[in-house]
Amino acid sequence: MSTESASGGGDVAVTVTPAAADEAVSLLEGESMDTDVAGLRLFVQQGGCAGLSYGMRFDNEPEDDDTVVEQHGLRVFVDPASMNYIGGSTLEFEGGLQGAGFHVNNPNAESSCGCGESFRT
């Protein structure tokens, strides 16, 4: 397992905005999960109109081969296969009446669908 802590510079596997971290940590705490160990799993799966889609879920701990990124009090777990597609991405959270939720800004995506939930590399 590789672990990265970001303090604003360098090549980080995945960047987490403060708003995304705050929202995810709040949700983890709402599930009574220990934020010192548990985290948000970010992964890629087959599906969506563009071929690949993003997935997210909470996990109690990382797997042995995960990359673990710690930023703004949030731990993010990414498996090696998913890292091939989302390395260098930024996890963002946008609030509001429409389109509220987590979004992945992925520089590796050649194209994405209109809703932004699936992509192609």
Results as ranks from 00 to 15, higher is better:
residue 2 S to L: 11
residue 2 S to K: 12
residue 2 S to M: 06
residue 4 E to I: 07
residue 4 E to M: 02
residue 4 E to D: 06
residue 4 E to Y: 05
residue 5 S to E: 11
residue 5 S to K: 14
residue 5 S to I: 15
residue 5 S to Y: 12
residue 5 S to A: 08
residue 5 S to Q: 12
residue 6 A to M: 07
residue 6 A to K: 13
residue 6 A to L: 07
residue 7 S to C: 08
residue 7 S to R: 14
residue 7 S to M: 09
residue 7 S to W: 14
residue 7 S to E: 09
residue 8 G to S: 08
residue 8 G to L: 06
residue 8 G to M: 06
residue 9 G to V: 10
residue 9 G to K: 10
residue 9 G to A: 09
residue 9 G to I: 09
residue 10 G to F: 05
residue 10 G to T: 05
residue 11 D to V: 14
residue 12 V to K: 12
residue 12 V to Q: 06
residue 13 A to W: 02
residue 13 A to L: 11
residue 14 V to E: 01
residue 14 V to A: 00
residue 14 V to Y: 00
residue 15 T to E: 02
residue 15 T to D: 07
residue 15 T to K: 13
residue 16 V to Q: 00
residue 16 V to P: 00
residue 16 V to K: 06
residue 16 V to H: 03
residue 16 V to L: 06
residue 16 V to G: 00
residue 17 T to I: 05
residue 17 T to R: 08
residue 17 T to D: 02
residue 17 T to F: 04
residue 18 P to Q: 11
residue 18 P to L: 07
residue 19 A to P: 11
residue 20 A to V: 11
residue 20 A to Y: 09
residue 20 A to H: 11
residue 20 A to K: 07
residue 20 A to G: 10
residue 20 A to N: 11
residue 21 A to H: 01
residue 21 A to T: 01
residue 21 A to W: 00
residue 21 A to K: 02
residue 22 D to F: 08
residue 22 D to H: 10
residue 23 E to N: 09
residue 23 E to L: 05
residue 23 E to V: 05
residue 24 A to L: 03
residue 24 A to I: 01
residue 24 A to H: 01
residue 24 A to T: 02
residue 24 A to C: 03
residue 25 V to T: 14
residue 26 S to R: 15
residue 26 S to W: 12
residue 26 S to A: 13
residue 27 L to G: 09
residue 27 L to R: 15
residue 28 L to I: 13
residue 29 E to T: 15
residue 29 E to H: 15
residue 30 G to E: 01
residue 30 G to Y: 04
residue 30 G to N: 04
residue 30 G to F: 04
residue 30 G to C: 06
residue 30 G to R: 03
residue 31 E to Y: 14
residue 31 E to K: 13
residue 31 E to R: 14
residue 31 E to V: 04
residue 32 S to Q: 13
residue 32 S to I: 09
residue 32 S to T: 15
residue 34 D to I: 08
residue 34 D to T: 08
residue 35 T to G: 13
residue 36 D to C: 04
residue 37 V to Q: 15
residue 37 V to N: 15
residue 37 V to A: 15
residue 37 V to T: 15
residue 38 A to T: 01
residue 38 A to C: 05
residue 38 A to H: 01
residue 38 A to W: 01
residue 39 G to Q: 02
residue 40 L to V: 06
residue 40 L to P: 03
residue 41 R to I: 00
residue 41 R to K: 15
residue 41 R to F: 05
residue 42 L to K: 01
residue 42 L to G: 02
residue 43 F to H: 12
residue 43 F to R: 13
residue 43 F to A: 13
residue 43 F to C: 09
residue 44 V to G: 08
residue 44 V to K: 09
residue 45 Q to F: 09
